[in-house]
Design a protein around this nucleic acid. Structure first.
Lengths: 220, 220
DNA sequence: CACTTTCTGTTGTAAAAACAACCGATTTGT
DNA sequence: ACAAATCGGTTGTTTTTACAACAGAAAGTG
């Protein structure tokens, strides 16, 4: 556990909290650590959860497979990111998607009730954690809206332009890499892979973009 | 202002807080009331906001129009619902969509900084409000994911089935009404109105559904 | 290194959607 | 009540997508 404190310190949940405080909060928040091999499920659709989680190692995908096997990737979760917080509710709603490790990963879980109910006597940093959690879910909300903006576009080309433009913007450069391979990008944008691959090549032929593997460059 | 307390009491933000406490918190939270005529903008894309808001009367749409005039409706906000909370962030992000009154509406604004920083001396109900806000944004998050599930479907028919099934489920009946007219439903599902209208009629002819205006019934 | 698996691009076909244009019904405003 | 505006359905055409099948490139494995 010890060696993960530095990662937690940089995580969104514990931003602004010192090493010692984090250590002392871990038991207070009911922290438990688990590891997952690539391909293993962290959460499954329909489960009822009482935990929020932070990725300490690896990478996860929030995804949903429908009855016919079409996969939709809702979000990617990297090291230090929070997840599960959207299922905190008084009614106790169940998960509507899976969370899967796409690399070997380590995840730490916290009892959500202990997180949101700030014990009056307890650690003075607790309220910072609550605020952090709030910022995190707020940010996730914006990301979901941004994703909706992409997939709301009518054609594959428009979806790609919308997504790639945003990546360029957030990485502050016309040259950037994306965290998806082709199949994953297609699943993220909700289009057919081969059709998307085809469209990417047409866009390259039209002089709009250059790419090689997951490195892209927007032209003009 | 007085007559709105009963509405606020039923709102998600003040759930579990008594009338008197709400009254006394209003000034503490920097409450301000505004009214909007149908069609007027409450928030505009690009604005920087420091408030969260609760609808007291009427109905709003969170929507986005792209460069070519295609409108995407991201969410509908009814009386008692909270909005703006997704733009609470340490970095102070700007709005990426518009919020428009689709009926004559009344909205109350609260200074978000005063909401999330619980003054040590202050009202004991403040922490309830913070938790409520958390639940509210958490629920909104789930709604966004649900919307993504709908529009990730490949065909218009699948999108319609996905959406209508969920409405039936959440209204606990195979017969239900939806809060959209045809154009709005098309904008919500990111499809062309006429194509959608066409598909709805085909589904009716196939014996899947019945409908009249915004009343629907799922068959079988 | 050979072998397997995964990834990416390519092509053709069938299905579906977008788009445009139109009309009748309904609703709204005065 | 009447004119104007909005709404919902219909049709035909064009564009786009999904789907399937395949092949070369790249990456992983023993």
């Amino acid at each position: 556990m010890k060696n993960y404190i530095s990662i937690l310190k940089k995580s969104k949940l514990f931003a602004g909290v010192g090493d010692d405080e984090i250590s002392s909060m871990l038991s207070c928040l009911g922290a438990r650590l688990f590891t997952y091999k690539k391909g293993e499920y962290v959460f499954r659709q329909g489960e009822h959860i009482n935990d929020i989680a932070v990725t300490l190692e690896g990478r996860l995908h929030v995804q949903k497979d429908d009855y016919w096997g079409n996969r939709s990737i809702l979000a990617e979760i990297t090291v230090g990111e929070l997840f599960g917080e959207a299922y905190v509710s008084p009614e106790g709603s169940t998960l509507i998607n899976d969370v899967v490790a796409i690399e070997d990963s380590a995840v730490i879980f916290f009892d959500v009730r202990r997180v949101i109910t700030t014990c009056p006597s307890a650690c003075r940093f607790h309220s910072i954690v609550v605020q952090n959690m709030f910022f995190a879910i707020s940010e996730k909300n914006r990301k979901l809206v941004q994703k909706i903006v992409h997939i709301s576009k009518r054609t594959t080309r428009e979806k790609l332009i919308s997504y790639l433009s945003e990546e360029a913007k957030s990485q502050n450069s016309a040259s950037f890499t994306i965290p998806f391979n082709r199949q994953q990008l297609a699943d993220f944008l909700s289009v057919d892979r081969s059709a998307m691959s085809n469209e990417l090549c047409k866009m390259r032929d039209d002089g709009l973009i250059e790419f090689k593997k997951n490195s892209f460059k927007l032209l003009q």
